[in-house]
Amino acid sequence: MVSRFESKKRKILEQLNTAASDYHDLSPKGSVDELIMPLIDAINRTDGLVTTSSCSGRMSVFLEGKKRGTGNHEQLYGSEDARAGPGGKGGGSWLYISHDPYKAALECSPDSQYMPMFGLQSRSSTLPKPPDPNTRYIHLKFEPMILHVLTASTDLSQRVLTAALSSGFRESGAVGLAPFKSGEVNPLVAIRSTGYSFDAIIGRQDQNGTNIALVDESYLGILIGIANDRFTVNAERIERLRLAFLQQFAMEQGIPVASSTDTNSNRRKPAWEDSETRKGRLKEEGLARQHALQVIAATTSSEDVSSTPERPTSLGDLFN
């Protein structure tokens, strides 16, 4: 009899193998990011593992949803159902999304076109009025890679967590550790790190629905340059995670451990390391395994079997 996990993995892989012209998921982009595909491919070729959602990292401009304000909120923004929660989440709209660095970011000249690209208008020379509690702000964000991996056992989830934590994804964890009625346990590992994300308010929407910039073109260029730097760090961590994952699973799966940027037909041998470097690496991996066990133990103690949700099968990202 096919297990619950195998059935779900087969459906996910069928969706992932759909022709690019026919594939679409629930993410704003609607498809899997190219940068993260080598990592996803390595995971999905491993027995007992399958990715359920992912985002390689992105820069975005986001208009907050209509807030839960007071006073004339109903008159300005509509019914109770349209209101957003704290931070403007719930509703809102994307004004710009990119999963790649902005190549012209450092060209901060008077002719830069950041504001039109983000759907903003320059504010007048007069000082803006103090915002009221219902003001909808516009954020420029950088969000690092996020990846969800469904596993066939707690042992596999521990090993995925070990690879994630040792690669710098410190906010990773696992849920769904309680068994289903069939007795099967399929933990879902969320791999993420918020350490190099950022969120800057760059504008607001006025009462007429116009998106007004609160900063100038030069400042937008600085923020985009910072986001470009974070894209570089993010790509390095994705590759570090892929190699850490292969170290956990490659020997039993027959997957070659090589850099995704290696264009040589000959597979690279693992880099030589001296005794001190090896000692440090083994110590870090040991601490990561210990942390993974603690995460699993803590989650298991609070897991409610009856409330375990059906897990997503979309390969789109799960941000906001």
Rank of each mutant, 00 (worst) to 15 (best):
K9D: 05
R10W: 00
K11C: 09
E14V: 03
A20C: 03
S21E: 13
G30T: 06
D33L: 04
E34I: 11
L35E: 08
M37N: 05
L39V: 03
D41M: 02
N44K: 04
R45I: 01
D47E: 13
D47L: 05
L49R: 04
M59Q: 10
S60K: 08
F62G: 03
L63R: 15
G65N: 07
K66I: 04
K66E: 06
K66P: 03
K66L: 06
R68Q: 12
G69R: 04
Q75Y: 12
Q75V: 15
G78D: 08
A82V: 10
A82G: 05
A84T: 08
G87E: 08
K89P: 00
G92T: 09
S93L: 09
Y96Q: 01
I97T: 10
I97S: 02
H99L: 00
H99I: 02
P101I: 11
Y102R: 04
A105S: 15
L106Y: 11
P110I: 06
D111Y: 09
S112V: 07
S112H: 01
Q113E: 07
Y114A: 13
Y114D: 12
M117N: 03
F118W: 13
G119N: 05
L120S: 08
S122N: 09
P128F: 03
P130T: 13
P131Q: 04
T135P: 00
I138L: 08
K141V: 14
F142P: 09
E143L: 07
M145R: 00
V149G: 07
L150D: 06
A152H: 06
R159P: 05
V160L: 06
V160G: 06
T162Q: 11
A163K: 02
L165N: 03
L165E: 01
F169A: 08
R170W: 00
S172M: 07
S172H: 06
G173V: 01
V175A: 15
V175T: 15
V175N: 11
G176F: 06
G176L: 05
G176R: 03
A178R: 11
P179H: 12
F180H: 13
V189I: 07
R192F: 01
S197I: 05
D199P: 07
G203N: 03
R204T: 11
D206W: 03
Q207V: 15
N211H: 15
N211R: 15
N211V: 12
I212Y: 00
I212W: 01
E217F: 02
S218K: 12
S218F: 10
Y219C: 06
I222M: 12
L223I: 12
L223C: 10
G225R: 02
D229E: 11
F231I: 09
E236M: 11
R237N: 14
I238M: 12
L241M: 09
L243E: 00
L243N: 00
Q248D: 03
F249I: 05
E252D: 11
V257E: 07
V257M: 10
S259E: 00
S260N: 02
N264M: 06
S265I: 13
N266L: 15
R267C: 08
P270F: 02
W272Y: 13
E276I: 11
T277E: 14
K279I: 01
G280S: 14
G280T: 09
R281W: 10
L282R: 11
E284Q: 15
L287V: 09
R289K: 12
H291R: 15
I296H: 04
I296F: 04
A298K: 14
S302Q: 13
E303F: 00
E303K: 00
S306G: 12
S307A: 15
S307T: 13
T308W: 03
T308V: 15
R311I: 14
S314A: 10
N320Q: 07
